[in-house]
Amino acid sequence: MNTSQPNNPKPGLVKNLLVLAVIGLLAALTLTGVHQLTEQRIVDETQRRALASLQQVLPPEAYNNALIDDYFTARIAGLSGAATIYRARFDGTPVAILADVVTDQGYSGDIRLLIAVDVSGQVRSVRILDHRETPGLGDKIERERSEWITQFAKRSLGDPPRAAWESDQRQGAFDTLSSATITSSAVIRAIRDVLVWYQNEQDEIYALRSEAGDGQIEAKDGRE
């Protein structure tokens, strides 16, 4: 093989250090260059994705404020951890809230949902952001896998009455995914809890100061 193998270790050491330094420097330069090149695009992409995930439940034409920056955190009875509430407004008039909440009542672990509630207290749309339910059973809560999650649109606490916000396997008003009663029920109750919270707090929700810049978004990821 053509690797040179000098017998004298002393000059080898210096040479080795030099080679290490040069290659390290080259690597650092390359990385700095690529970082400069991509930094802005990556930030933009991250923003775009966060917004796109919110826009699953609220079309972009429905609001014109900076949705991503108009939020606060709240504790909602029945749900685990702190929920992030985004507020959509059109020319300053409240349109809807988008609640990013987590329920721990799923069949295997937490389910994270995004729930849009109109000013009137009506559900606009619901999507599942994250879950670990059994494939083929509980994962039908995802919009990509079934229509089930769309049944909540335009429903509110009066329609059906609060007590009937349950799966029909438990004498409630909503369809149940077959063989996934626990999962279905967890989602239905999470929506109900958000609606109840909204009803109790609606006078203050749109008046609260936004927490943008407080670093709450990071804190949210760390919760259980």
């Binding site: 059994t134 494939p135 083929g136 059973l137 077959s178 063989s179």
Partner: peptide, 10 residues
């Protein structure tokens, strides 16, 4: 069980 969870639970 993994492939047909619904059929297997009925």
């Amino acid at each position: 069980i993994i492939a047909f969870p619904i059929d297997l639970s009925q």
